[in-house]
């Protein structure tokens, strides 16, 4: 009988990488993994080793993933850092697509109206005082932003809010918010709100923000969001 090798271990500078075969059954894989990891002679003095698991084209349910994690965790000195798979479910893919998609809406958002979308919002039109736009991603307003804009409203602090004319009642990013000053003020043209390192919402020129958020660029953005 030819013994198939389902598990290959690779040592890298950052720790171990476990390449798991994606054609055998999950049970076979667990059995062999159990054996392989037990064989290792463990040096007691050694520090914890981080393990990256590569699944290839295998999809794991969350309980299977948990099983795998507990198995590896039982072995001495091993910590699972990451489980990587080449495949995701259709559902996840759709959500991913939706979250990284840009929705274009052309209308004036008037007082009392709320626009809520998943992904990035490109609004061609104004947001009037009393109107609200919300997006899970970034918000770009080609028009006057005079109402409330809430970017990354499901918790994405990296989201930004840009507007041709920025004179908002409030800017909100993730769980943070900032409001307009109490005195009468004029708006600013072509500016952008983002969260800086200190955890405050800052408004700055568009050009500056483009440098601070390089992930705004096209495809990289959608990959990083995932």
């Amino acid at each position: 009988m030819i013994k198939n090798q389902y598990v290959t271990i690779k040592g890298t500078r950052d720790g171990l990488t476990l390449n798991l075969d994606d054609t055998c059954s999950f049970q076979q894989l667990l059995n062999e993994l159990d054996k392989t990891l037990s064989q290792d002679d463990i040096d007691v003095e050694q520090s914890m080793i981080t393990v990256k698991v590569k699944l290839g084209n295998r999809y794991l349910h969350s309980d299977q993933e948990e099983q795998l994690r507990t198995l590896i965790r039982q072995k001495n000195k091993l910590v699972v850092q990451d489980i990587e798979s080449n495949v995701i479910t259709k559902e996840q893919a759709m959500r991913w697509k939706e979250e990284s998609d840009m929705r274009i809406i052309t209308k004036t958002v008037r007082s009392g109206q709320v626009i809520e979308i998943t992904g990035d919002l490109l609004l061609i039109g104004d947001v009037n005082p009393g109107g609200t736009v919300k997006a899970t991603g970034n918000i770009f307003v080609m028009g006057n932003l005079r109402g409330i804009a809430h970017a990354g409203y499901k918790g994405n602090q990296d989201a930004v809010i840009m507007a041709s004319y920025m004179h908002p009642v409030q800017l909100r990013i993730a769980t943070l918010y900032s409001r307009s000053p109490d005195y009468e003020s004029d708006g600013v043209y072509m500016e952008c709100g983002y969260v800086d390192q200190s955890g405050k919402i800052i408004i700055d020129r568009l050009q500056v923000v483009a440098k601070k958020r390089p992930e705004l660029n096209g495809f990289e953005r959608s990959v990083l969001n995932g």
Binding site: R110, S111, G112, Q113, N128, P129, G130, G131
Partner: peptide
């Protein structure tokens, strides 16, 4: 003007 905006929206 705020209320007019609301009405126009409706």
């Amino acid at each position: 003007v705020r209320d007019a905006d609301r009405i126009i929206g409706l």
